[in-house]
């Protein structure tokens, strides 16, 4: 079985986003961009399925500016077999990304597509579900456990009340939650090897997908800042404060 893993290049999760002074967005110039953490987990899960003999090939896909190649090379260094870059400058909304991914799925015929549950830049949490809808496939979102058994994948999902397990007919869509696994670091030899793994370059036009955004961003601003408050010196003082708040 082939596994497709879409990976997105985003502001590194350790960095604090800075809003541009003109209100047009978040400043991404000269800052570290890395693979979306949930997508690292997706790549890792695909590799583990390959190591178990369930998967035979892992194809990483990214949609974005030319530099997204670096993100794909990271996926290749972790253990993906080949990569597809759909170059697109400017906004790529989840619906357009899902349409591109559908076209790639039609070509590649994977048995499983594993995506991140959300990208930590826009926090949309949509792409996997949209892709599942466009393909008419079942979806196992927010996965903390994935087990393939024959023609079925059992997915344990992190839901608000606790955990839920669903059995999905393959092919299917899985989106990763944080506790699915701990992604490996690529070793230096594997980083070197990744440089010669195949990376195909495409454009949205190759797949006939219209990238025109449906949503226009009018402005982006800083959230209201919270002021640091006071420090109290003892538990007694804290108890007094709690009483003043009416909670004790």
């Amino acid at each position: 079985m082939k596994i497709l893993v879409p990976v997105k290049r985003v502001l590194d999760y350790n960095l604090k986003p800075r809003v541009k002074a003109d209100g047009s967005g978040v400043d991404l110039a000269n800052v570290k961009l890395s693979m979306n953490p949930f997508d690292e987990i997706a790549v890792e899960e695909a590799i583990r399925l390959k190591e178990k003999g369930v998967a035979t090939e892992i194809v990483a896909v990214s949609i974005g500016e030319a530099k997204s190649q670096e993100t794909l090379r990271t996926a290749l260094a972790m253990g993906a077999d080949r990569a597809i870059l759909v170059t697109h400058d400017g906004v790529a909304e989840p619906l357009a990304v899902a349409k591109l991914l559908k076209a790639i799925v039609d070509e590649e015929q994977p048995g499983l597509v594993i995506l991140g549950k959300q990208a930590i830049d826009d926090d949309s949490n949509q792409t996997g579900q949209m892709l599942a809808a466009l393909l008419g496939w079942a979806q196992g979102t927010f996965a903390s456990k994935v087990e393939v058994e024959g023609e079925t994948v059992n997915v344990t999902r992190e839901v608000d009340g606790g955990l839920e397990t669903v059995a999905l007919k393959l092919p299917a869509i899985v989106t990763t939650d944080l506790r699915l696994n701990e992604p490996r670091y690529a070793s230096l030899p594997n980083i070197m090897k990744a440089k010669s793994k195949p990376l195909a370059q495409k454009t949205p036009a190759d797949y006939g997908v219209d990238m025109t955004p449906r949503i226009e961003t009018l402005n982006v601003s800083e959230p209201p800042k919270r002021q640091a408050g006071i420090k109290v010196g003892s538990v007694d003082e804290l108890v007094d404060k709690l009483k003043a708040l009416g909670v004790a």
């Binding site: 978040v26 982006v220 601003s221």
Partner: peptide
């Protein structure tokens, strides 16, 4: 967006 570090009007 960005974990609430930015607020977008769309």
């Amino acid at each position: 967006i960005y974990a609430g570090n930015a607020i977008a009007q769309v």
